[in-house]
Nucleic acid binder design. Structure first.
Lengths: 280, 280
DNA sequence: CATAGATTAGAAAATAATTTTCAAAAACAA
DNA sequence: TTGTTTTTGAAAATTATTTTCTAATCTATG
């Protein structure tokens, strides 16, 4: 049970009274909600329509209707697709391989279903007009940042990424409102990344977060929020699947960026490949 | 492929003019419709909202909203196992997203089908008993090398990776027959990576290659060959999907390594997470 | 344990989305 | 052609959702 329902469960602690009531009802009756309107749900769950509407926005849906739509898509998958599989001691190789396959595929499809086209579009527009792009991330997410950095450089976009936290903040402090900063962290609670994105925001840069689905500190600092699917609690080494999902989102951003400026950028891409071949 | 879309197709004959127009649009843009309202769809498809509402009732839905909901559920189920899709100029965002999903998923499943369990097992055994592990790769493959490096460090394996080609060769020249070198390159023809792996082989190290499927220089230098799926010819920006496939193989290697030494290594993994939390 | 300030919640107003009605246009039959 | 039926979309009616605004509740502090 990945995705939305997991995210709701995880954030139950941080909710206030009525939100918890609603969350509890949603978790218990997920299947039914798909066939309800907001009015019916408000009667059943004991919260007003206003509170439910706000509840949905907490989870970064545009509103109740989108929440319902994404939930329907998620529930449709449940019985069919393989769920995330944990890796345990002494598994024979073939079962490791198929578990890995299931986890990675699931991670990509779940993340895709969760993507908010509007946020994605806003992110691409922001990148398109950015003078300078800063990418923040440490450890695994740092590699994702570097991956995007390599891509951006190939199309001639000014971009930087640092593994050193001090350099991240230093770079962030030089951004302006014409710039974009992207903070990547699966949990959304990585101190270094938070510090850098906060600094970028304070300097007026457009801030984009890429974290697991749900509310977290990094997301709260970002003007545009992008999400990857949430892995089940207790899933060992979730960072493998989450990194694949992050790269998936990065690829979409990049292709979106390239596609909108296709005629301008593709020759540059081809050119950068040719140049590397020639001058190495 | 049962469900709504098939039903629409079947009943196309018995429809009247405008309904056919709408049906054609729905079939061609099913993915997008999920993100539209009835008003937007009416503009796009060239039928009025009234006609669309009636269209939905023809199919025994209570209305447009239910139609959209069921369609979303159906599309979620559709195992995005289509074939590789090329990205072309000015694609709308939803089709970029689904093309990306199809490519990445396909890349993982194809690579899995292609995996040779014997080679995989040999690779894991080699890594298990390695004194030192050298990882070679440039550009995108360099990030894959770094990813593996980060993982190996976490379980206390001695490993190195360099982006500088001179350092790669320097490091390779210090390897012995107790060591393992892994060369990563999608084409298998990257000069720097070839040079480094060749040097490692000459010094007696066990050599592992990770390239696209088929014969190539890097593979010919390796005592153990691992492959990722080959992308269709003409596929633009194949390095996105290939990088996902490479990481997939790396993850399998890593989990295989951890699994075989589970009781020994897992505490180390947990410990490294705790230490990072504590001392950052 | 009062009280100022902040947060939360719901009623009702405002807005947005969808469906129905109804009149006009198109298709069809004689 | 002409009368009849069917199809269509503009606009009205309905329904659903979101926002606003005020009251209630909670929280921190003297």
């Amino acid at each position: 049970m990945p995705g939305i329902l997991t995210a709701i469960q995880e954030q139950m602690d941080t909710m206030n009274r009525k939100e918890k009531e609603i969350a509890a009802y949603v978790l218990a009756h997920a299947q039914n909600i798909v066939h309800m309107g907001i009015t019916e749900l408000s009667q059943q769950s004991g919260g007003s329509t206003a509170t439910i509407s706000r509840f949905c926005k907490q989870f970064h849906f545009s509103g109740f209707t989108e929440f319902k739509l994404k939930l329907a898509a998620e529930l449709a998958l449940e019985p069919a697709a393989q769920s995330y599989q944990d890796i345990v001691a002494g598994n024979p190789l073939p079962s490791i391989v198929s578990a890995m396959e299931a986890n990675h595929v699931r991670s990509i499809t779940d993340t895709t279903r969760m993507l908010d086209m509007k946020q994605l579009h806003k992110a691409i527009e922001a990148l398109k007009s950015a003078r300078q792009i800063d990418l923040y991330g440490v450890a695994t997410s740092g590699l994702v940042a570097q991956d995007f950095y390599q891509k951006l450089v190939r199309i001639g976009k000014r971009a930087v990424t640092f593994s050193d936290p001090h350099m991240q903040v230093t770079s962030a402090s030089n951004l302006t409102d014409r710039d974009v900063a992207i903070g990547i962290s699966y949990s959304g609670e990585t101190a270094e990344t938070i510090a850098a994105l906060k600094c970028a925001a304070e300097n007026g840069a457009t801030t984009i977060s890429l974290t697991k689905f749900g509310a977290n500190t990094l997301t709260s600092l970002a003007s545009i929020s992008l999400f990857t699917s949430t892995l089940e609690e207790g899933m060992r080494r979730g960072d493998m699947a989450s990194r694949i999902a992050q790269l998936h989102v990065i690829d979409i951003l990049f292709v979106g960026l390239v596609s909108e400026q296709f005629d301008d950028l593709v020759p540059r891409l081809e050119n950068s490949f040719q140049m590397v071949k020639k001058y190495r």
